[in-house]
Nucleic acid binder design. Structure first.
Length: 650
DNA sequence: GCCGTTTTCGGCCCGACTGTTTTCAGTCG
């Protein structure tokens, strides 16, 4: 081999790569016993990096590092070093102090940094495999701080780790939550059952489930919970909360709320942690300590007044004697409680923040300034631009899908069976497209007749309901489109998607998607990132996203948020950037069966997480407005589009 | 290590549950 060129730049790490590095640093510092706030700072920075919409390494290399909350000069310098050299000397040195394999021990439930350090320093355990071996051989123990119970807990933790479930999709979480809520509602004294946590915030996937129960009889609720079928282990159970692990499923936490005081409980257990930290800081600024129980008045000793210590006795003596009577002896401070979340936020001087925004992504500032956006809602949607029938890979008939769309009160449902290039999904040939058109026309004739006769479903809007003919058009591996122009021009709405050749290099993949965006026939790019959540997990396609957003904004091609719970694509971070770049979105169900039409709500939730308002979502528009847009008449730029190429349907 | 409608220094969210350390540390959410 010849000598390497002297200055070949190292490959660019992804945000996930960078986040993993800083998470590792945080964990190693924890094990080393570093100041907690320092380790937290690294983890916070890692989280911010992982969720940043910027391509951070690319921006650093381009010499314009983005401002990332939680990333200060020290971590910024480290990012710069990684991007420039592909290495981080700080981490290399840290590995000399603390074996990097210790991080995997932190994954064990019930095991924290102190325990890991004990295992390492006193027993020489450096890996999960070391621990497994030691537990089997009975050599773990015999040191202070590790009792028999501690060892049993370690063993249970390792077993729990081995069968740890992956994160659930929202649909799976909803099914589990609904079953538990139905059971709890039957327990005596229960007034309300409310799902909380990341499920309520509608994160794309959910790890643990959190359920709140407002009840007069906490013991009965907790007993009902821990004794329900499907529980494989009780993690803990007290008088205020309990946690169980479901067989082959997630951990579920139950919290009890005293009646009439749900406000702070809901806020606390909905989170996120980062959002709560902000709220508590606000409360503290106002002289209150915020916990799930309510707002407790901070005592003199709690106030941050460095000079107060010496004069404390004098101040106490100077206090009004009456006040001392109102606040009995010590500790028992005034507690403010609220029935609703709105009151809690109001007490902090904030507008009520929708759960989907509670991620410390600017919502606290916006709520304080009264500038929270009006978010899109399921009720805003007048149609759905992406659904399948049994003509391709759906399971219900065209008529069943249409009737279901009509029953939802839509003005339209776009039937988007696959094009023939996606053979695995029984894609339609041009001949079957033509045959399908006849079926659709007959259905629409009946719908029009029933509307005229006043026998259409009550939910039918004034404009009536029509089934529109679309297709999910395959963007082929070579970038060409799967139907010719004449066939494409015959659809009401063309939804293009890329399913094949996912591993092509970024330039080639990007060119394929840009080609579709710039086609005069393509109206929507479906699930643009091509990601899959859950067990079928697939990462986002490696696309030059800024180019995608710019081209979509320029041509008016719509970008989809796919509501299928294993897609949710675009992801919120991307959708937020796309709208900022001037793009218009659709939120679709991608339903393959009647029941999945309701899944559009998951897509709406992701749009809300992206701060998207109804004005940026094309299927909040009337059918006429949507058709005018896709026909080219009302798009921002029609250059290159074959104006009037779309046939008029309705 | 980060950060500033109190602060460029001195703070950084709070409580339940567990085990056992008879007054609290560790872990978790």
């Amino acid at each position: 081999m010849a000598e390497q060129p002297p200055v070949a730049p190292p490959p660019l790490p992804s945000n996930a790569d960078l986040a993993a590095i800083f998470d590792e640093i945080g964990s190693l510092l924890e094990i080393r016993g570093e100041l907690v706030f320092k380790t937290v700072a690294y983890h916070r920075a890692a989280d911010a990096i992982a969720h940043s919409p910027h391509e951070i390494a690319r921006d650093y290399r381009a010499g314009r590092p983005p401002a990332i909350p939680g990333v200060g000069s020290a971590i910024s310098d480290k990012i710069a070093e990684i991007v420039a050299t592909g290495r981080l000397r700080f981490l290399d040195r840290l590995h000399g102090d603390v074996p990097p394999t210790l991080v995997e021990l932190l994954e064990i439930p019930g095991v924290g940094p102190k325990t890991v350090r004990l295992l390492w320093e006193r027993l020489g355990i450096e890996t999960l495999e070391d621990l497994r071996t030691g537990l089997r051989a009975g050599t773990v123990g015999g040191v202070p701080g590790l009792t028999e119970k501690g060892i049993a807990s370690l063993r249970a933790g390792v077993e729990a780790l081995d069968r740890r479930s992956t994160r659930m999709t929202l649909g799976t979480a909803e099914r589990i939550v609904a079953a538990i809520a139905a059971r709890l509602a039957e327990a005596p004294g229960v007034r309300a059952v409310v799902p909380a946590g990341s499920f309520r915030r509608r994160r794309e996937t959910v790890g643990d489930l959190d359920i709140l129960v407002e009840t007069d009889d906490p013991a009965a609720a907790i007993a009902s919970f821990t004794e329900m079928p499907g529980v494989s282990a009780i993690v803990n159970a007290g008088t205020a909360k309990a946690a169980v692990r479901l067989a082959g499923g997630p951990q579920v936490d139950l919290m009890v709320m005293p009646p009439g005081r749900a406000g702070t409980y809901l806020v606390h257990f909905t989170g996120s942690k980062e959002h709560n930290v902000r709220l508590r800081a606000l409360a503290r600024d106002r002289g209150w300590s915020l916990s799930e129980k309510g707002f407790a008045r901070l005592g003199e000793a709690d106030e941050r007044r460095p000079a107060a210590a010496e004069s404390e006795a004098a101040e106490a003596g100077a206090d009004d004697a009456g006040a001392a009577e109102v606040e009995p002896a010590r500790g028992a401070t005034e507690l403010r409680t609220f029935a609703t979340e709105a009151e809690v936020y109001d007490f902090l001087g904030l507008a009520e923040v929708p759960p989907e925004l509670r991620e410390d992504g600017g919502e606290v500032e916006a709520a304080r300034a009264g500038r929270l956006p009006r978010l899109v809602d399921v009720a805003d949607l007048r149609g759905d631009c992406h659904a399948h029938s049994d003509w391709s890979d759906g399971i219900h008939t065209i008529e069943q899908m249409a009737e279901a769309g009509r029953a939802r009160g839509y003005e339209y449902l776009v039937l988007t069976d696959h094009s023939h290039g996606l053979a695995i999904a029984r894609g339609l040939s041009p001949e079957r497209v033509a045959a399908q058109r006849t079926v659709i026309a007959e259905l629409n004739a009946r719908f029009a007749r029933e509307e005229a006769e006043g026998v259409a479903p009550a939910a039918t809007p004034a404009a009536g309901f029509r089934l529109l003919q679309g297709c999910e058009l395959e963007i082929r591996g070579d970038g060409s489109l799967d139907f010719d122009d004449a066939v494409l021009a015959s659809f009401d709405v063309v939804v293009a998607a890329l399913h094949q050749g996912r591993r092509q290099p970024r330039g080639q993949l990007t060119a394929r998607v840009l080609g579709a965006i710039r086609s005069p026939h393509v109206d929507v790019i479906a699930h643009p990132a091509g990601r899959m959540l859950g067990e079928r997990g697939r990462d986002d396609l490696d696309l030059a996203w800024d180019e995608i957003y710019a081209a979509a904004a320029e041509t008016g091609t719509l970008l989809e948020i796919d509501g299928s719970d294993h897609r949710l694509d675009l992801a919120p971070e991307r959708a937020r950037l796309a709208v900022a770049a001037g793009c218009t979105l659709t939120i679709d169900s991608d339903a393959h069966r009647v029941e999945e039409l309701a899944g559009i709500a998951w897509g709406v939730a992701q749009a809300r997480r992206a701060w998207v308002g109804p004005g940026s979502v094309a299927n909040t528009w009337s059918r006429a407005a949507l058709l005018a847009w896709v026909g080219g008449g009302s798009r921002p730029a029609t250059a290159g589009r074959a104006a009037g190429s779309r046939r008029a349907t309705s």
